[in-house]
Design a protein around this nucleic acid. Sequence first.
DNA 1: TAGATTGTTAATCGATTAACAATC
DNA 2: TAGATTGTTAATCGATTAACAATC
Lengths: 228, 228
Amino acid sequence: MPRVDSQRREPPGLSSASKVPIPTLERLTTYLRCLIDLGASGVETVSSAEIEHHTGINAAQFRKDLSYFGEFGKPGVGYNVAELEGRIARILQIHRVQPILLVGAGNLGSALLGYPGLKEHKFHIVAAFDNDPHKIGKKTWDIDVFDLRRIGEVNEVLGARIAILAVPAGAAQAVTEQLVEAGVRAILNFAPIILRVPRHVAVRNVSFLQELAVLSYHLTSDPLAADK
Amino acid sequence: MPRVDSQRREPPGLSSASKVPIPTLERLTTYLRCLIDLGASGVETVSSAEIEHHTGINAAQFRKDLSYFGEFGKPGVGYNVAELEGRIARILQIHRVQPILLVGAGNLGSALLGYPGLKEHKFHIVAAFDNDPHKIGKKTWDIDVFDLRRIGEVNEVLGARIAILAVPAGAAQAVTEQLVEAGVRAILNFAPIILRVPRHVAVRNVSFLQELAVLSYHLTSDPLAADK
DNA sequence: TAGATTGTTAATCGATTAACAATC
DNA sequence: TAGATTGTTAATCGATTAACAATC
């Protein structure tokens, strides 16, 4: 029985119902990328120590992270690169195409549409929504832009469960409610606002401003450290 | 004497030299946004309990976070909204204009250039760089696009300490080295790669793919939870 | 078998939250 | 003064890392 209201608990913003720590999930994508690279270089087997060498993530951490999902390696041997890659992709549900709705076809939204990395990782934006009459009915990067008010209707057909929210802060909460109504269960939020969502909906926030502010602070804390 | 090599320790990716926890710095921007909103609504004083109500962040957490930087409130009364707002902005160094270099003037880069939130928070992109001859010499959103190779020379004049890295993964490490050479001390990295940087350089990573993967996992963990 | 490396338990570390004396 | 709320110390919680028996 999951209880965790909205984004209260997990700082990064995911309302998790499971026992797997969020940091573990975040690292999983790092391992995956590393394994893809290793596979491309013809490496067939890796040890946790080698993963540490490549990713900077502690070997024990790596093994512990995997242990949440089962057993993946052979003692004395290590991990089969191709197999582990496949299993992590499956855990993250990125072994099959994941349809995604994009809300907000402004600058940021269009940039995301044009970002090839998404498709490479099986995230397919299948429809875009906006409330600007100039955009509705047109295509951006081959994707239809629909009237925001048609989210429910359109997603009845598409059945996407993930949405990317790239609208101004002022509109974000209202759009979120429409998305939830339309069956969306996970939202990647670019608006600088804390979304209120039902318990079963996950939210991750991306905030450039926050990141820049943290970096900005760093400039003060470590004055001129005469590093060679 | 700061020691923390590259992005080893702090999961979010900042090489911190100070004692302030990274999560505290991240929350600071949330408080700031909240205070700005409260100020705009004419509120003059807030208590930590009210901050908790607005942000969802525990009141004790809020007070503890502030305690790293000094004393800000009056027992029995609370905090002066305008004053606290100003002091947090100053802590984060966003009370004065912060010049920023943008490297990579592709889709994402241009979208960031057009994002009004940056300027609103005193982050001014002062120059863009690319290696595409079609872009060099043109302007995007009023900003000059320079040849990548001229970073050092141009930044000698501009003196920016923060850079946004929006280039493909393959180019990211090489560009990073040029940036560090040019005096950049903080990098907001959009490339899906772990950058190797000297100890005195801070890095924050923004990874849509990672965020989407975590969301994607969420869809499996909490099957159909018949939430009303 | 001897050497290597796993999965997991226990120890460490750090961040969050509760509790409360100080103080407006 | 009595009530409210701070700043801070102590308790709790959870995540990271070290250590090691199991096992290939």
